[in-house]
């Protein structure tokens, strides 16, 4: 028996000519490839935009085509927050709390005019843009944006992940006071910690000027 039996080449074992079996890459790129193809969105849907977000996830537009259909209502299991809808001063502490509960790395889409800038509602109760208080990666214009716009935003997020960018790096989370305290609007603030949320700022004499 002069011929030795030919065993098929196992991936990564045989065939040192380099014609197959190997992919050389940086570990970071491999991880980012996984991340961008399996985004798990946390839908912070409050108002009209949430309905368009549902439409995006449903039959016709089907966000599942881009690997982002696993909607997680638990912030601990998600990496993309979609803030869709108006955020009031009663909801803002909840939003910050939920954002802080999401594990790193995380991305954030501010969907629609209200979440991005307050939209047409320039009133006493509405946050004029959530980007004042949480970092936002992609803004979507529109009132509400069409599902195509949301898909486009998800594609932009994928691009960012591919390049390894994210907004959160720019910020120091440890200085965020809500990281260390439960969101409790009523309780007195711990000594030395910044005052919490939503109470009236004293602006004596400005009330009349602001009126109208």
């Amino acid at each position: 028996m002069s011929e030795t039996p030919q065993t098929p080449a196992l991936p990564g074992q045989a065939d040192k000519s380099g014609s197959g079996g190997y992919i050389t890459t940086k570990i970071e790129e491999l991880v980012n490839w996984g991340r961008r193809n399996a985004l798990w969105p946390m839908p912070f849907g409050t108002a009209c935009c949430a309905i368009e977000m549902m439409a995006t996830l449903s039959s016709r537009y089907d966000l599942a085509r881009f690997g982002a259909e696993v909607i997680r209502f638990s912030p601990r299991q998600s990496d993309l927050m979609i803030v869709s809808g108006r955020i009031s001063i009663k909801m803002m502490p909840v939003l910050i709390e939920i954002y802080n509960q999401m594990p790193e790395p995380k991305w954030c889409i501010s969907m629609g005019a209200c979440a991005s800038s307050g939209g047409v509602f320039d009133t006493y109760t509405l946050i004029q843009g959530v980007d004042q208080f949480i970092p936002v990666d992609v803004y979507i214009p529109g009132c509400p944006p069409r599902p195509e716009s949301l898909i486009d935003a998800v594609m932009l997020i994928r691009e960012r992940i591919k390049r390894g960018e994210r907004q959160t790096k720019l910020y120091d989370r440890t200085k965020h006071p809500l990281d260390f305290q439960p969101v409790n609007l009523v309780s007195d603030a711990v000594a030395g910690a910044p005052q919490l949320t939503g109470t009236r700022l004293s602006l004596p004499g400005k009330d009349a000027a602001q009126n109208g």
Binding site: I89, M92, P93, I96, D122, T123, Y124, T125, L126, I127, Q128, Q132, F133, I134, P135, L170, Y171, D172, K175, H176, P177, L178, L185, V186, P194, Q195, L196, T197, G198, T199, R200, L201, L203, K206, D207, Q210, N211, G212
Partner: peptide, 27 residues
């Protein structure tokens, strides 16, 4: 803990700064 009654006519439309009184991020 909100102060004031917003639909009174002497309450300003844009509030008295409550909507900006949240902790900001530090860069």
């Amino acid at each position: 803990n909100y102060e004031g009654h917003p639909l009174r006519k002497d309450y300003p439309l844009k509030g008295r700064g409550e909507r900006d009184n949240f902790p900001k991020y530090t860069e």
